[in-house]
Design a protein around this nucleic acid. Structure first.
Lengths: 365, 365
DNA sequence: ACCAAGCATTTGAACGATCAAACTGTGCAG
DNA sequence: CTGCACAGTTTGATCGTTCAAATGCTTGGT
């Protein structure tokens, strides 16, 4: 393999010194325009590329963000994080940042990786995707002054036990609220809800959005409301089972809002199985499946999430970690609003029943 | 931020020299056991981590693999590459390798990134995921002696115009052949085929597997065979439309084998729409959706693909690029065999029709 | 005419590791 | 007793870059 050109080589050709070449690349403002042209020509001529590792060794910055890739993509909804990863990679590239993936079996092991990556100047910051209550990882990162953002806010935002850290999240309350209102706009008078039973903030929040809309517009509360909701694990079969239960109750719902597309798909199947093809069903996350089967769903603005995460870490435009990140005074949160994507699954009530409930939406893509 | 310990610090504490510390980490064999213990203790005591960038600067190796993340995950099947990425990241981690993601809009831009990443010692090798006929990227990589593997073999394996490079692929012929045989085992006498119209090797291969099985076991050939196949773009609506056409023909198929789960899902819908719920349908790629709706599908052994890719690059176990990679004599290809995952969509013929064709498979996961 | 201030550029040192060569000490054959 | 081989360790140089301080050259105020 041939010897690569270095700053020294460029400097010789351009008739200047190393440092001037360095300045052309890093502090263009302080270089005389004429010199600049000469150096740039030399760079071009030699096909010079700075040696990233040498730079990192000296500056202790890497222009790289560490992201842990979760072991398995769990079913249909697992792709959400993959989609986020795509968005993050693209947005990062726009700022000259790159993404370094790694894996870890346990939080402790992950912290070990944090340390290795940070100490080796491999990454400047981390983006965490699935945090949980009293997460030891966020605690460690805060304690060691390692810049990071989480996608998903900590369990208790105003919980005194949890220290404050930067996060970006999508407003789950708004999402299920919109979904519920959409169902009501379509004529529903009793909107059912299929949610998660894992006790996470996400689960509570999404349920609350549904409950709020049901209370405000349908006057439902207390037990009247509670009997319309079921909480299960995520999954198509679980959704199917739960929806079947709801629909078999004495006062069944006339629309169902779900906390995931998997649950929603199960619910659609259950409805169809009971001959209730026209039952409006709304999912969550707007996965490719939802688009494929014509399921209305709540879309999370992942691109905006990625953009916001980077802004919290690096400021509006830069690619070096912003100093203000750890000052608690600044707004280090971003709560984004999701949007409803209406498809056939909620138009059936007003449209002639086409015979097959899961017909694809031909107008998309 | 506190000053991190260096080899020098460790050496002082252990009462040895820099190089001995370095040897403990990189060539443990040549260090006297007693010294070793002392140095290891010092490392532990100080919490020393080698500085990755300094090492890279010196050795010109990074223990990192570059992967381009495709701009958008295209629909249901797009997740295939994401799943591969997961597998690759995990397998790589086992060898102490990491994955660096990057994006590029055009092949030219991507080559530019190759150069930058290689010259900066950011990555040791690349893994390419979607190669195409006369791909300028593989040409550049070969020309510049940059180690790489592709997932997917070049269009013409024995095409003289294409130079040889290492690749891993999954045998598409075998996949659709298994699918077709499975349908025939289930009683089908005329197996339809929905494929891609993009003229790729993949498309041709998968069609050939179906054609071969149909010829051997059903005695179909020539026009009799051709009228059972349709080629379209990938997508649920396209599958729906194509299957509708096939089923409306004078001599319709009694089972359908598809080149993707998207097409298969569309086919299932079309069948159901025509009241032919029991029509066996088989998809390809075994996406989460297939599992969710009980669609039989061909599963690609992505974990094995990842493992094989790494073996081709780094040898059986190592983490430094194997020298033999570019010697044309070695077996630098791996053709893996996919497996069929049978689900409800191909059991309906023998089982009582449950009324709803897309019922989830409750026994999974 | 002089010195202070400023701009553009250069120089020496440093970042933390590994390589290559030099150095020790021990055992053993001649 | 000398010399050679060899295992184990140390030393000096080096990778390519940027930092911090120094240099040379203008400019302008008094």
């Amino acid at each position: 393999m041939r010897q690569l050109p270095t700053v020294e080589d460029v400097a010789r050709i351009a008739g200047v010194s190393r440092q001037t070449v360095s300045n052309v690349l890093n502090s263009p403002a302080i270089v005389k325009p004429e010199t600049m042209t000469r150096v740039k020509a030399a760079i071009e001529q030699l096909g010079y590329r700075p040696h990233a590792s040498a730079r990192r060794l000296r500056t202790r910055k890497s222009s790289t963000i560490g992201v842990r890739l979760d072991p398995m993509s769990n079913g249909i909804s697992g792709s959400l994080l993959d989609r986020f990863l795509h968005a993050l990679t693209e947005r990062a590239a726009e700022r000259g940042l790159r993404i370094l993936l790694f894996t870890a079996r346990t939080p402790e092991h992950e912290i070990e990786e944090f340390r290795r990556l940070r100490d080796g100047s491999d990454v400047d910051a981390f983006v965490l995707t699935s945090t949980f209550r009293q997460d030891p990882r966020t605690a460690w990162l805060l304690e060691n002054d390692v810049p990071f953002v989480t996608f998903g806010r900590p369990s208790g935002d105003d919980d005194l036990g949890e220290p404050i850290h930067p996060w970006v999240d999508v407003d789950g309350f708004s999402g299920s609220n919109q979904a519920t209102n959409h169902a009501i706009d379509g004529g529903a008078t009793r909107v059912g809800y299929l949610g998660f039973d894992d006790g996470t903030t996400t689960a509570l929040e999404r349920r609350a959005g549904w409950a709020s809309a049901s209370a405000e517009r349908l006057g439902l509360a207390g037990r009247d409301l509670a009997i319309l909701a079921l909480a299960t694990e995520d999954g198509v079969p679980q959704g199917n089972a739960a929806a079947t239960t709801l629909l078999a109750s004495p006062a069944p719902p006339d629309a169902i809002v779900c906390a995931s597309d998997s649950l929603a798909l199960g619910a659609m199947m259950a409805a169809a199985g009971l001959g209730r093809n026209a039952l409006p069903v709304i999912g969550y996350d707007n996965t490719p499946v939802a688009a494929a089967v014509g399921l209305s769903s709540i879309d999370q603005p992942l691109d905006l999430v990625a953009q916001s995460a980077l802004e919290l870490l690096f400021g509006e435009t830069g690619s070096t970690v912003a100093a203000h990140v750890h000052s608690a005074a600044d707004p280090i949160h971003r709560l984004l609003t999701p949007t409803l994507v209406a498809r056939r699954s909620t138009e059936l009530a007003s449209v002639e029943n086409s015979g097959f409930p899961l017909a694809g939406n031909h107008h998309e893509r």
